[in-house]
């Protein structure tokens, strides 16, 4: 059975890049445009995603708020969440970690490393 990845990014470019990369690696991809949309998409899914990949800087609800909201729901605490961040952003990594992120993916991402990161955290 294909793993399902929920990707959340306000940039169409990044969403498409993630979709192409993940689909070609055999994942089913579900997309959301910001943190608020991510919550709505998550609530509408019959089966929870195997992994969530989220950007941090987004309108309406940013990545930190999204992660906190997901982790506040006990039934969703086991979903691995990876944040998209840049190498230099130690502060954002730390904040994401405190919010409940499982790990991170450094942008611009290498397709192999992206899939590796998913495999590291996916059940």
């Amino acid at each position: 059975m294909k793993r399902t990845i929920l990707t959340i990014d306000d940039s169409r470019t990044m969403r498409e890049m993630l979709k192409v990369t993940l689909a070609s690696s055999g994942f089913t991809v579900v997309q959301a445009e910001d943190g608020q949309h991510g919550i709505e998409v998550l609530e509408g899914m019959d089966i929870e995603p195997d992994v969530i990949i989220t950007d941090i800087n987004m309108p309406r609800k940013d990545g930190f708020q999204f992660i906190e909201e997901v982790r506040a729901d006990a039934s969703r605490r086991a979903i691995p969440i990876l944040v998209l961040t840049t190498e230099s952003d130690a502060e954002k990594k730390q904040r994401a970690r405190l919010a409940g992120a499982t790990g991170w993916i450094v942008k611009p991402f290498d397709p192999t490393k992206l899939v590796d990161a998913i495999n590291r955290v996916a059940a």
Binding site: S11, T13, M14, M17, N57, M58, P59, L84, P108, F109
Partner: peptide, 22 residues
């Protein structure tokens, strides 16, 4: 603050996409 955040995100997004295309 929403305006300032939007301005920041605009530049941040351009940077992110540009990085992907080297």
């Amino acid at each position: 603050s929403d305006t300032v955040n939007a301005v920041f995100r605009a530049v941040h997004s351009i940077k992110g996409g540009a990085g992907a295309f080297c």
